Structure formats: C-alpha cells, structure tokens
Amino acid sequence: MDNTREKGELSLKELVHLIQKWLKFLLGKWYILIIAGLIGGAVGAFYASTKRTAYTAVTTFVLESGEKSSGFSQYEGLASMVGMDIGGSGAGIFQGDNLLEFYKSRKMLQATLLKTSASDTSKLLIDRYLEFEEEKQKKDKQIDFRKHYAGSEVRQRDSLMNKVIGQLIKKNLKVDKLDKKLSIIKVEITAFDESFAKEFNTALVQEVNDFYMQTKTKRAQHNIQLIQQQADSIRGMMNGNISTMASIVDATPNLNPTRQAQRIIPSQRSQFSAETNKAILNQLVQNLEIAKMTLLKESPLIQLIDVPTFPLENKVVSKKFYFFIGFILCFVCSAFILTLIRFYKSAMSEEQIA
C-alpha cells in the first residue's frame, strides 16, 4: 500500500513538474506568441473591414381571413336557385403555412423584382439587386429586363432571373409567424443596399397581399358581376314594357268603345311582362345584396403593424471583435505548435541517448 501511494504521489509530482516546465517554456517564447497573436488579430481586423454592412427591413402584419359562418346558410338554397354560390372562395389554400410559401414563389418574387425602384425610377428592383451583388459584371452581355427578348436571349434572361430568385430565397428573404398560434406574419429582407431592402420588402408584401385579396374574393366578385348583369338586363326589359304601355295609350287617344281590344290586349301584355320582370328584379336585388354581404364576409383583414423605416436595422461588423478572435486563435495555435515541436525534439533526443 505504501509503495503504491508513493508511486502515485511521484506520478502526480511528475505531472505538476511537467506542467511547470511547459508553462516556463511558453513564457520563454512569449514574444513569438505575441507576434503570432498580433498577426492573427490584424488578419481578423482586415477581414472585418472587407465585410459589408447588411441592412434588414422588417414588416409585420396581422391577417384575419373571413370564415364561412352558419348565418348565411339560410341564403344558400335561395342563391343556388339562380346559379350563385355564396360558399367559401378557396380559403383552404391560404390556411396554415401555405400563405408563407407565396412569399417564396417565383410568381411573387419575379413580379416584385420587375417593379420600378421608388428611389430611382430609371431602374427596376432587379437592377438594384444586381448592382450590389455584382452579378452584371459576370455577364458577357447586359440584360435589360424592360425589353422583350426572343430566342436564346429569353433563356439567358430567365436563367439570370432564376439565379436572382434563388439567391433571394437562400440569403435575403425570411418569412415566418411570430407565434405558431397567432396570425401575425413577419417578413424580413436583408441586403447590402439599404434602399433596396426597404423598397423590396414593401413591394413584396404589397404584391402578395394583393394577390391574396384577389384570390380570396374572386368567386364573390364574379357572383356580384353576374347578378348585376342579370339585374341590369331585367331592369332594361321592365323599362321597355312600361314604355310600350305608354306608347299604346298614346297611339289610340280617341279609341272607339267598340274597339277596346286594340288597346287593352297589348297594354295588359306589356303590364304583365313589366310586373313579371319587376318580381324577378326584386329577387335579383336581394341576391345582389347577399352577394355583397358575402364579399364583405370573405374579404380578409390585413392590418400592417410595423413597416420598415429609415434608418434600417444594420449589422455592422466589429473590427475589435474580429481582432480579438484572431488574436486568441493564433495565440493558442502558436502555443500548441511550439508544444508539439518541444515534445518532438525531446523524443528525438531521448532516442539518440538510448
């Protein structure tokens, strides 16, 4: 037991002695470690100086889509008699996370990129993007997205557009809900151009929300147009019947009492047609009001909460931070390398002695 304890104490002493020798060795090489650390810090600071400032434009809005309520079920049978559907207008495609995917769709992003820049009307938003991403310098031929190309030029234009859209989805665009249980949507655009970030964010939100509104209420708007056309047609026919009745009376001012059929029969026919059209018109007017109420019910509420304003939030790269990181990394790496060299030399010298 005593021998085991003495050997354990001896091994511990050797370990402490080894650490002391290692620290002494490193302290003797302090100048090398400091120089390596300064070089690493300089490299880190230089890297930070080459990094561009990224600006983030954020828009948040609350979305409340119209839901089909039982209060309108009493009108569905009546509306179906005239071929009108007052049911839902495809709300299902906007349920869950489907709406978020519209922000990443080619249709929405391309339509937004082809909008004119508000700060420079001579350029499209895609031109602004290509400027700070320096993609145009990589192209043998300049592409003007305002022109209509043909042949191989269309393929070249579409290829560049696809590349830009892919980069936007991967690096610049972020769309998510603030909370899975809430209907508050957050749209972020990060770019090296502050004006582009703000303009593209605003244009994209407007483009998607307009598309959403149009699609959500498309069926209800179609019903209103259809019933309005029918109502206008019946109203015109009724007015024509009334005019016909008046014309018949005017055409026979001093009618012989024995010839009343010449006035009564055409007049009653016109009167019957006018009353029939009036009844139909009353029904169509009721259906038209129902359709308008349905449109209001199905029109979603989109209320902006926060919109991007200058100056935008930016991520400035800290030179001091990168200098510190570079200094620490090079300092530690240099100490590790010096330690390996010392162990290698010690091992080689022991072999030579042996």
Score class of each variant (00 low, 15 high):
85 D>R: 00
69 S>H: 03
78 L>S: 09
51 K>Y: 00
56 T>H: 01
80 S>C: 01
97 D>P: 00
87 G>D: 14
109 L>R: 02
90 G>M: 02
77 G>F: 02
88 G>T: 10
108 M>I: 04
66 G>L: 12
51 K>V: 12
66 G>H: 13
99 L>D: 05
110 Q>W: 09
58 V>N: 07
111 A>Q: 14
90 G>Y: 01
64 E>K: 13
101 E>W: 05
104 K>P: 04
77 G>T: 14
79 A>F: 05
54 A>F: 07
68 K>H: 00
58 V>E: 11
93 I>C: 00
77 G>V: 11
51 K>S: 03
87 G>I: 10
91 A>F: 00
109 L>M: 05
107 K>E: 14
83 G>R: 09
93 I>K: 10
55 Y>M: 02
107 K>R: 07
71 G>Y: 00
94 F>N: 08
109 L>D: 05
104 K>R: 09
62 V>N: 06
99 L>R: 03
75 Y>R: 01
68 K>W: 01
55 Y>F: 15
52 R>M: 11
92 G>E: 12
96 G>D: 14
110 Q>H: 09
96 G>K: 04
111 A>F: 03
105 S>W: 00
51 K>N: 13
93 I>F: 07
95 Q>R: 07
60 T>E: 06
79 A>S: 09
76 E>D: 12
75 Y>T: 11
102 F>I: 06
51 K>D: 09
67 E>K: 07
92 G>D: 09
106 R>E: 07
60 T>P: 02
53 T>P: 02
94 F>K: 01
57 A>N: 08
101 E>R: 09
107 K>Y: 13
56 T>D: 05
71 G>V: 01
62 V>M: 02
54 A>Q: 11
91 A>G: 12
86 I>V: 13
91 A>C: 00
76 E>C: 00
54 A>L: 15
83 G>L: 08
95 Q>S: 13
52 R>G: 13
84 M>K: 07
69 S>E: 06
108 M>D: 14
51 K>I: 10
92 G>L: 10
102 F>H: 11
107 K>C: 00
60 T>M: 02
56 T>E: 11
72 F>G: 12
59 T>H: 01
76 E>P: 03
70 S>K: 07
75 Y>G: 05
73 S>C: 00
99 L>G: 07
86 I>G: 02
99 L>M: 10
58 V>Q: 06
61 F>Y: 13
84 M>L: 15
62 V>R: 03
90 G>D: 05
71 G>Q: 06
